[in-house]
Every structure is written in structure tokens, then in C-alpha cells.
């Protein structure tokens, strides 16, 4: 099967991180240190990408680990994968920062955050097995170009509906119906191929 080594790595990461998070939930500070060693590059990359500012990203990253410390007991390994859970906290924290601070700062930041070009996936700490990744990208490719790029801009830039509509120069209602139709197609495609 394609990508078996990625798959092995991903499931080993998953088991390791799930265990470490359980220790963090018991307020084991050394466990948080281990988690930081293992995941901080991944999460820092996310903070940096979304905030577009290095100094801010360092502060955001610190807050991310403090949130993880507070919320680890709420992590449910039966519902979410640990790295997605961690990455989502990083993304949401960076988006919060962006909405609170940087929206008006510079167009450069916006461009940095939303660069649409694909970066090459890094080899370590992959979120998903390569099959899941391929499936998502295949299904995104099936969408029309404009909703696809809106989804990517929302994911990487943290834009709201109103901002996406403004950027695409379409009415809010149009953007919403594009997206809602795309979500349906995306889900059907991911689940049924």
C-alpha cells in the first residue's frame, strides 16, 4: 500500500502524543516539555504562517502551550487525533491574534498568511497518512477554482465570510452559497471517493 512508512510514522506519532497529552492532563510539566520538544516546530510554523510576524508568532506559540496545559484534560483521543487537536489550537490562537491585532497592519502580512502556493509537506509530524492527504487534495481539486481558493484562504489566513467575499469581490450571499455547496461536495467526495 502506498505510503506505508508515512502511515507507520503517523500512527507512532499519534500513540506517542496521545500518551504525552494524558500526562499533560495530569499537570506533568515534564510531559509538556516533551510535547514542546516534539511539536513546537510544527506549531510554530502554523503560528508563523497565519500571523505572518515572527515576534508575534513567538508570543502566540507560548500562549498555545499554555492553552494546551489548561485544556489537555479535554482532549478526547476517540474523537480527534492529537496532532490535529494541537494544530487546531495553534491555528485558532493565531487567528484570534490576527483578528485582534493585525488585520489593519499590513497587506504584506495578509499575503504572507495566505500564500496559495503549496509548500512541500515536511517529512516529520505529518498530520495525516498520505492517503487522507491525497484524498483531500483530490477532492479539493474537484471543486470550482474560486470556492477552492476561498477554502484555502480561510484555512491559511483565518478570513471570515465577509472578508472572503470582499477579497473575491462577490456578495456575501454568493460566497456563502459557494462554500456551502463546496462543503457538501467535499464531504461526499472524501467519504465516497
Amino acid at each position: 500500500m502506498a505510503g506505508s512508512s508515512d502511515s507507520d510514522t503517523a500512527s507512532a506519532d499519534r500513540a506517542y502524543l496521545t500518551g504525552v497529552l494524558a500526562d499533560v492532563a495530569r499537570k506533568d510539566q515534564e510531559a509538556l516539555h516533551r510535547l514542546h520538544e516534539r511539536t513546537s516546530a510544527k506549531l510554530f510554523g502554523i503560528c508563523l504562517r497565519i500571523s505572518g510576524e515572527r515576534q508575534a508568532a513567538e508570543d502566540i506559540l507560548q500562549n498555545v502551550y499554555l492553552k494546551i496545559w489548561d485544556r489537555a484534560e479535554r482532549f478526547d483521543p476517540t474523537r480527534a487525533s492529537p496532532i490535529t487537536w494541537l494544530a487546531t489550537i495553534a491555528r485558532n490562537t493565531a487567528i484570534d491574534w490576527r483578528r485582534a491585532n493585525s488585520r489593519h497592519l499590513s497587506a504584506d502580512t495578509e499575503d504572507a498568511a495566505t500564500g496559495i502556493a503549496d509548500d512541500r509537506p515536511a517529512a516529520d509530524m505529518l498530520i495525516e497518512q498520505s492517503q487522507a492527504s491525497e484524498r483531500l487534495h483530490h477532492c479539493l481539486d474537484e471543486l470550482d477554482e474560486r470556492p477552492r481558493s476561498a477554502i484555502r484562504a480561510a484555512f491559511f489566513g483565518g478570513f471570515t465570510y465577509a472578508e472572503l467575499a470582499r477579497r473575491a469581490d462577490v456578495p456575501l450571499g454568493t460566497m456563502k452559497s459557494w462554500m456551502r455547496r463546496s462543503f457538501q461536495r467535499l464531504k461526499a467526495c472524501i467519504e465516497h471517493g
Partner: peptide, 28 residues
Amino acid sequence: EERFAPLFDEIAPVPAPPGHWQRIAAAL
């Protein structure tokens, strides 16, 4: 969140700055 999660893999990891853990430990 899980469906979109593979997009995170498009973001390259960047090493956290030296001393970052110490900041967190101090805050804790």
C-alpha cells in the same frame, strides 16, 4: 477539522526560537 487537517502538512515546520520552552516554564 480532521477533514481539513491534511492542509496543515503544507505548512513547513520552523524551529521555535531558543529559550522558548524556558518562557513557557517561567509562565507556568
